[in-house]
Simulated assay, not measured.
Amino acid sequence: MESITKNRQPPEVLRAMTERAYGAGRIPAGDGWVSELGHGWFNVAYRIRLRDGAEVVLKIAPPPAVEVMTYERGAMSVELAVLDLLRTRTTVPVPAVDFADRSRELCDADYFFMPYIDADNLAVIAETLPTAERAALMEQLGAANREINSIRGPHFGPLAGPGHAGWRQAFTAMTEDVLADGERRGVDIGWDYHTVRAAVAEHAGSLDEVTEPRLVEWDLWNGNVMVRDGRIVCIIDHERAFYGDPLIEAGFAGTQLAAFGDPAPFMRGYGHGRLTGTEQTRRRLYCLHLLLIMVIETVYRGHTDTGQYDWARSRLDEAMALLGRTRR
Results as ranks from 00 to 15, higher is better:
Val34Thr: 15
Ser35Gly: 11
Ser35Cys: 09
Glu36Arg: 10
Gly40Val: 14
Phe42Cys: 04
Asn43Trp: 13
Ala45Arg: 13
Ala45Tyr: 06
Ala45Asn: 15
Tyr46Cys: 02
Arg47Gln: 08
Ile48Tyr: 11
Leu50Lys: 09
Arg51Cys: 05
Asp52Thr: 00
Asp52Leu: 00
Gly53Met: 08
Gly53Val: 07
Glu55Gly: 02
Glu55Asn: 07
Leu58Ser: 10
Lys59Ser: 13
Lys59Trp: 12
Ala61Asn: 14
Pro63Ile: 06
Pro64Gly: 09
Ala65Val: 03
Val66Phe: 05
Val68Ile: 15
Met69Gln: 14
Thr70Leu: 07
Tyr71Asp: 06
Tyr71Lys: 15
Gly74Ile: 03
Gly74Ser: 07
Gly74Val: 04
Gly74Ala: 02
Met76Cys: 00
Glu79Ser: 11
Val82Gln: 04
Val82Phe: 12
Leu83Ile: 04
Leu83Gly: 02
Asp84Glu: 14
Leu85Gly: 03
Leu86Arg: 07
Leu86Gln: 11
Leu86Asp: 03
Leu86Cys: 01
Thr90Glu: 12
Thr90Pro: 11
Thr91Tyr: 07
Pro93Ile: 15
Val97Gln: 08
Val97Thr: 04
Asp98Leu: 15
Ala100Gly: 03
Arg102Asp: 09
Ser103Glu: 14
Ser103His: 12
Ser103Gly: 04
Arg104Ile: 01
Leu106Ser: 06
Asp108Ser: 14
Ala109Lys: 14
Ala109Tyr: 10
Met114Pro: 03
Tyr116Cys: 05
Ile117Ser: 12
Ile117Gly: 00
Asp118Tyr: 04
Ala119Phe: 12
Ala119Gly: 13
Ala119Cys: 14
Asp120Ser: 15
Asp120Trp: 13
Asn121Cys: 10
Asn121Trp: 01
Ala123Leu: 14
Val124Arg: 13
Val124Gln: 09
Ala126Val: 04
Pro130Leu: 11
Pro130Thr: 06
Pro130Lys: 11
Thr131Ser: 11
Ala132Met: 02
Ala132Glu: 13
Arg134Tyr: 14
Ala135Pro: 00
Ala135Val: 00
Ala136Gln: 06
Ala136Pro: 03
Ala136Lys: 05
Glu139Met: 13
Gln140Met: 05
Gly142His: 08
Ala144Asp: 05
Ala144Thr: 00
Ala144Val: 05
Ala144Ile: 07
Asn145Val: 09
Asn145Gly: 08
Arg146Pro: 01
Arg146Gln: 12
Ile148Arg: 01
Asn149Gly: 01
Asn149Trp: 09
Asn149Ala: 12
Ser150Ala: 15
Arg152Ile: 07
Pro154Ala: 04
Pro154Arg: 12
Pro154Gln: 12
Pro154Thr: 00
Phe156Asp: 06
Pro158Thr: 04
Ala160Ile: 03
Ala160Tyr: 09
Gly161Arg: 00
Gly163Tyr: 13
His164Ala: 09
